[in-house]
């Protein structure tokens, strides 16, 4: 199994000498490979970056969605049977600790250079965050609220749907927010196994040493993460109006 297009990369990095790029025609800025060429960025944004941004969002959305379903189920089961909490946490923490580049590479012999490989690793990274936040949210539901629910004659299911989950919602959304931002970060590394996303222009730039592409792709990834974070803060506030008083 060979990593397509990556083979030539380390030689260039290892030499570490002056990189002599061959950037066809371009402005003086591009030919001299200055730190950042705004003209190149605006002219090539559609060609080089727009699809990558969409791929990146897809990679992230799929990973967080699948991760949420798994972690949410695990948290509900743990809430009912607290004993399994420690082993589940240890397992998720184990997955979370694996360095991303290694995780992606270790999946390649198993599932190949595919989106499946990337998503298995990315989903694994969401589990600890989403599980811990959901469980904490449920466990911190005040006992008074549960007693009141019981006194009103709510069944277990009704208590879960009408009392426990709504009260746990701020913590759950906070977990989703952390997970999204984390996965946006890790998905850049996924490009190493050829699944695209904003990491792809970064790895391309490593091969030809084109500085503008380094900076542009890096900044776009940072902006994507910050925008996603900001949007989720807004969602968090809209969905939990009662928590607004506490938000500092």
């Amino acid at each position: 199994m060979s990593v397509a297009g990556i083979g030539a990369l380390p030689a260039l990095v290892a030499q570490g000498g002056p990189v002599v790029p061959q950037f066809e025609q371009g402005s003086d800025c591009v030919r001299e490979n200055k730190g950042f060429c705004w003209d190149w960025f605006t002219q090539n944004f559609d060609r080089v970056f727009s699809d990558r941004i969409i791929q990146h969002i897809e990679l992230t959305a799929i990973a967080v969605s699948i991760g949420f379903v798994l972690a949410f189920a695990a948290a509900l089961i743990t809430y009912r049977y607290p004993r399994i909490g420690t082993p589940v946490t240890i397992f998720f923490a184990f997955l979370y600790t694996i360095p991303s580049l290694a995780f992606f590479q270790l999946m390649v012999p198993v599932t190949g250079l595919t989106w499946t490989s990337a998503e298995i690793a990315l989903v694994s990274y969401t589990l600890l965050i989403l599980y811990r936040n959901t469980l904490t949210g449920l466990q911190e539901v005040p006992g008074d609220a549960l007693e009141a629910a019981q006194a009103m004659g709510l069944t277990r299911r009704q208590t879960m749907m009408r009392v426990e989950l709504p009260l746990a919602l701020p913590a759950i959304i906070a977990g989703i927010r952390i997970a999204v931002v984390t996965i946006i970060s890790l998905a850049t590394v996924a490009a190493f196994i050829g699944v695209g996303g904003l990491g792809q222009p970064i790895f391309n730039a490593i091969q030809d040493g084109f500085k503008t592409q380094f900076v542009a792709a890096g900044v776009l990834a940072v902006v994507l993460a910050l925008v996603a974070d900001a949007l989720l803060v807004i969602v968090q506030r809209l969905l939990t109006p009662w928590a607004r008083a506490k938000v500092g």
Partner: peptide
């Protein structure tokens, strides 16, 4: 904010501005 900074992106920006 720190958590939102993709590590590879920071390294990439550094490659552009500081070199290898």
């Amino acid at each position: 904010v720190g958590r939102a900074l993709p590590s590879l992106a920071i390294i990439s920006i550094g490659l552009g501005l500081l070199g290898i």
